[in-house]
Amino acid sequence: MNPVNYLYLSALLFTIGAAGVVIRRNAIVVFMCVELMLNAGNLALVTFSRMHGNLDGQIVAFFTMVVAAAEVVVGLAIIVSVYRSRHSASVDDAALMKL
């Protein structure tokens, strides 16, 4: 099977994720979309690794997973604490950082 198809899939997933981040208001969903983008990136990296016949892409993919796991821990904690204090998980409600 042509590995380029994986790249198309990756681009599709990334676009879905990016659109989700921009469009959705629920912080959890936005968070999931970010994960989707990260994993789309991982897929592209693994595909390139396969196409070029070396392991560099796979190694970077591992790094991405580790970083994503750490990000989930911190990010979810923030979302939970924001929800507890404001009783809302909408990203638009947390719009205080403006002039």
Partner: peptide, 12 residues
Amino acid sequence: RRIQNGYARSYA
């Protein structure tokens, strides 16, 4: 400064 509206999505 109008660009700076506080909405995370607009920054994204």
